[in-house]
């Protein structure tokens, strides 16, 4: 069985027909043209599918699409574009916080949620907040650096 679901995706209203057992990640990737959120483990361990729902970081692989009815979904595409990167995205590029890139959109979205809640996080707070995102390439060092740099720039200190 299925049904229509309406929600806001990156600031624009969408209406899409989904199956009852359809997860948000698949709706985004296969029906709505979103490619940033990734399928990693599928069982809530890796954070590669992280998107923001009403400003909160959640796992789109463990969210039924029907659950976001009426809500605001934000993905990396809505944060910035290749021409106009968001400060966090730019910081990831500038600090080489990317190797294979698979986990990056998840990290960027988690960082976006963090900086909205806590504009001046300490290194420890950053590490704590990104605990649910796995990166198997970088060892996290540059990711943490990038998030701290983005925080500085966003709060006007850089």
């Amino acid at each position: 069985m299925g049904r229509f679901v309406s929600f806001t995706l990156n600031g624009k209203p969408v209406r899409v027909y989904v199956e009852d057992n359809e997860i948000l990640l698949n709706t985004l990737r296969y029906k709505l043209g979103i490619k940033s959120a990734k399928y990693g483990c599928g069982i809530g361990e890796c954070g590669a599918c992280t998107v923001l729902v009403d400003g909160r970081a959640v796992l789109s692989c463990l969210t039924l699409t029907t659950e976001v009815e009426g809500k605001e979904v934000l993905t990396a595409e809505g944060l910035g574009t290749p021409e106009r990167l968001h400060t966090i995205q730019k910081a990831f590029a500038e600090h080489a916080a990317v190797q294979c890139g698979y986990c990056t959109p998840g990290f960027v979205m988690t960082a976006a949620a963090l900086l909205k809640e806590n504009p001046n996080p300490s290194e420890e707070e950053v590490r704590e907040y990104i605990r649910g995102n796995y990166c198997r390439c970088t060892g996290y060092y540059n990711i943490v650096k990038a998030i701290l740099a983005a925080a500085k720039e966003l709060s006007g200190e850089a």
């Binding site: 009852d20 057992n21 997860i23």
Partner: peptide, 24 residues
Amino acid sequence: FKVSPGPKLDINKANTHILPPFTL
């Protein structure tokens, strides 16, 4: 937002871990 027509593949079978069908 422009909605593309559904893909040919059954997207619920596109993953390594697939939700079994149920009635919501």
